[in-house]
């Protein structure tokens, strides 16, 4: 035990000097969900897979509503999206004073060669 005491006495602190030195974020971390609605076809696959019901897709209105504070960052939506519109960002969701939804609306609906969406 005495070795432990001495090594702790002369070693650097185990904690980080936080605001000055932040923690390095790991490479493939599931931080927070990021939408890129440019290619979105509003198929609703993400909303179906979401275990927390954090995503609502309104196809006629071309609208995606995402409740950031219901999200559990499981990355199911990112796996379900075939258009690659959803990515997991390498940063954690920021704290906020109000609980608000993120709404995307009005991106073009893509059609295939048969004219179907």
């Amino acid at each position: 035990m005495i070795n432990n005491v001495l090594s702790n006495l002369f070693s650097k602190p185990a904690t980080r000097n936080f605001p000055a030195k932040t923690r390095e974020i790991a490479e493939n971390v599931r931080g927070s969900v990021e939408f890129n609605t440019e290619n979105c076809v509003y198929c609703g696959a993400c909303a179906l897979k979401c275990p927390a019901n954090a995503i609502e897709v309104d196809r006629p209105a071309k609208k995606v509503t995402f409740d950031l504070y219901k999200c559990v960052a499981c990355a199911c939506c990112a796996e379900a999206c075939r258009k690659g519109c959803i990515q997991m960002a390498k940063q954690y969701a920021h704290p906020s004073y109000r609980k608000m939804d993120v709404v995307f609306q009005g991106a073009p609906l893509l059609t295939d060669e048969n004219g179907e969406t």
Binding site: A26, E27, N28, V29, R30, V72, A73, C74, A75, M88
Partner: peptide
């Protein structure tokens, strides 16, 4: 905990 962060992408609920 750092291993979980690196391998699974989350520290606690590793999913």
């Amino acid at each position: 905990m750092d291993i979980f962060d690196k391998t699974a992408g989350s520290r606690v609920i590793i999913s």
